[in-house]
Design a protein around this nucleic acid. Structure first.
Lengths: 248, 248
DNA sequence: CCAAAAGTGTTGGGCATACACCCATGA
DNA sequence: TCATGGGTGTATGCCCAACACTTTTGG
């Protein structure tokens, strides 16, 4: 997590030459398995050095003529087939010595990573397994040690997700098109922990906001009364966007 | 403002060579003139090509062995003397063709800019005018056309400021050590526009939160009853941090 | 008919809004 | 003594947490 240190004087560096950079883009791609109430992140098994055979966030180096966002979308399209996705820039990690290649092929080349934050729907997302490439959804709670500083990047993405969940309608980017109010509630509890309102109040608040429309369709899951399927109504939400708004 | 476009396929680029980058850091440094109720941003008159004699955000290129944050602090220390400052990363602008030097010295070198967001106290900040360097606080509302994409960077910083003001105690990073409740109120109105609670309610809410301590000192500004000087009590605030909290 | 899941209702306390009002000072 | 800016008080209504309750299904 990037901290905010106070003051620093590096005038010794005053006449140091400029650094040359390669720029990488790494994506933190989240998704939720509604059936098992698990928050998932997409990981790739690395095929080349450095960190061969170690899990990492899906990433790539930026090519000539390519924007950062283009690179982020390229990663997505190489690893995953989705109809719809949410993507935003996360944070830029650029300290020296964050990539072992800096020491080896040297000539002072630095590796900087611009990370992106993405949300996709688990059910719609089809993983593209080229050859023997390891690619998998990992429950965030069980993520192993990752290549580079990717554990740190993931942690930062996770905080961002928690924050966004509270004040913007990102939940509907991860849920299926139609969902029960319980699915929504479960999503909030699995991501945020269950330190908030009980189901009944959660339900009441969300419905009062008026951008969840009942499709009328009922779905039965084992015993118990069947639940209504709702969908997010973007039009009804529009007037509320960029108003302060809490979803807890 | 960085948007979130949906999908894109750039497989034509599939075998394009990697881009080489120089990395710049640009700071959006805000401050507030409490006397005149103006939000200020620090601008520098450029001395070299490109964009000679045009105003720009203070920035620099990252040197060997230097982290991004180090570079950001270096800019600060070269332009301004302050006791205390708030600094955080803002956004990374990395599209091709955002810097005219890409066309000229060429060899495919790209210029990427990592922007930082800083807050300083107007009264404490002493500008360092080396030689004839133009350096000045500009009222945000009167900023001219800037070099590069700096108007866009500034706009993004401005939004960030507005957002942070609503849910975190950044106000006290820009205000002087001691301030009247009216100063605080004015700050909120000049930055956010006056679309919120009246002074009386603003006052009541803030005081109830309990992290503003009355110094007992009174200050008289022309006619009218003298106002109490308050200061931000970081200890009293500590337990409240990272709780959801609205300052409007 | 009972347990399980979904959905509704009620009640009390707290907080925000919109005001009206009192206080201390300079001119 | 009055205009000016600072500060206090109060009534209304809304929202929210807690929790009790009803409805609809499967077994």
């Amino acid at each position: 997590m990037p901290g905010h240190k106070q003051k620093k004087n590096l005038n010794l560096l005053n006449e140091q030459p400029l650094a040359d950079f390669k720029v990488g883009v790494d994506n933190v791609i989240f998704s939720v398995d509604t059936a098992q109430n698990r928050l998932l992140v997409l990981l790739i098994m690395r095929q080349q050095e450095p960190f061969v055979n170690q899990w990492s966030l899906p990433g790539t180096l930026v090519r000539q003529g390519e924007s950062l966002e283009d690179a982020a979308y390229r990663i997505m399209s190489e690893k995953i087939k989705v109809n719809n996705l949410y993507l935003e820039q996360l944070y830029t990690f650029g300290g020296p010595n964050r990539d072992p290649r800096e020491a080896i092929d040297s000539f002072g080349v630095r590796y900087l990573s611009v990370s992106y934050f993405a949300l996709v729907r688990f059910e719609e997302a089809e993983l593209i397994a080229d050859k023997v490439t390891g690619i998998a959804w990992y429950p965030v709670k069980q993520v192993p040690e990752l290549a580079f500083d990717h554990n740190e990047v993931l942690a930062y993405g996770h905080t961002r997700l928690r924050n966004k969940l509270e004040y913007s309608p990102v939940a509907f980017e991860v849920l299926p098109e139609t969902f029960t109010l319980n699915d929504l509630y479960q999503l909030y509890t699995t991501v945020l922990g269950d330190n908030f309102a009980d189901y009944s109040n959660f339900r009441a608040r969300l419905l009062k906001l008026g951008f969840l429309s009942d499709t009328g369709i009922k779905i039965s899951r084992g015993a118990g009364r069947p639940a209504s399927l709702y969908k997010f109504d973007a039009e009804a939400f529009a007037p509320l966007k960029d108003k302060p708004l809490v979803f807890i």
